[in-house]
């Protein structure tokens, strides 16, 4: 019976699913990692308790932090350490002698983390509302933001893995991307000329997307002015920034990816 289902699905899909299942299992077995992935990103929602109910400032800070941390912990850090660990274990090398294609192998490493980020992002909606956040202006765009952020940071993880010597070194090599992710949030206090450059970081793009999609905020403004329709247009530039980062990271990763431990 199982064979029937198998033969009717595409081989590429079956390979990717099988590998994803194993990577998911390994992720679930690492309890500490899992706690970091699920719990840590939701902690910033506590900011909502500080401000008044419906306060845009604290809601913005809380929600942006949730999504940036969801992109960083379950996705970026997790995918980076899984890729480096599987490489050190020579699992990647062995799998590559078989029928599996490289893209399928990488997808299987990214999917478990992306799934956790999606669960965190979706779970944040009722939690934030319960804690007094305003109702999202464009929930579809918000969910899309979570998905796109997760994918971009998965690709950034592969690029980092390409030049990370081993799992230990990942603590250091992850720094540049972590900086790219968090600089967007502190940028609001920076002068205009600096901010224009910081707007080009993935972190700033996520900040813009979360603030416009959920709160209807236009750029650094603290006044919710965007309508549902306008939030789509406001998403254009930050989405383009994220796409550019993904393309750059994918190009760099493809050029320099290593499948065996460095000797």
């Amino acid at each position: 019976m199982t064979t029937m289902t198998f033969s009717s699905t595409s081989p590429a899909l079956r390979r990717t699913t099988g590998l994803t299942k194993a990577n998911g299992r390994l992720m679930l077995r690492n309890r500490l990692n899992l706690a970091y992935g699920f719990v840590l990103p939701l902690l910033p929602l506590a900011f909502l308790l500080v401000g008044d109910r419906g306060d845009v400032g604290s809601a913005g800070m809380a929600l942006v932090s949730v999504i940036v941390m969801a992109a960083l912990f379950p996705v970026y850090y997790n995918v980076l350490s899984m890729t480096v660990t599987r490489r050190d274990e020579l699992v990647l090398k062995r799998i590559r002698t078989g029928e599996t294609r490289d893209l399928e192998l990488l997808t299987s490493l990214a999917l478990p983390g992306v799934a956790v980020a999606m669960i965190v992002g979706l779970g944040a909606i009722p939690l934030a509302l319960a804690l007094g956040a305003p109702v999202p202006v464009n929930p579809v765009m918000f969910v899309l933001t979570v998905l796109v952020s997760a994918l971009v940071f998965a690709v950034l993880a592969f690029w980092t893995a390409a030049w990370t010597k081993n799992a230990e070194a990942a603590q250091i090599t992850s720094m540049p991307v972590i900086l790219l992710a968090v600089v967007g949030q502190v940028a609001i206090s920076f002068p205009e000329e600096v901010r224009r450059w910081i707007d080009l970081t993935p972190g700033a793009a996520i900040t813009d997307l979360v603030r416009s999609s959920w709160l209807g905020l236009d750029g650094p403004s603290t006044d919710p002015s965007l309508s549902f329709g306008e939030t789509w247009a406001a998403a254009g530039q930050p989405l383009l920034v994220l796409a550019a980062w993904a393309a750059l990271a994918a190009w760099l990763a493809a050029r320099s990816m290593r499948w065996e431990p460095r000797s």
Binding site: R14, G18, R25, R29, E89, R94
Partner: peptide, 20 residues
Amino acid sequence: SGFSGDLTVAETLEMEAATV
């Protein structure tokens, strides 16, 4: 050999079988 130590023999082979 290239294996993940935290998977069982059966889980390793299931994964492998999916790629074949």
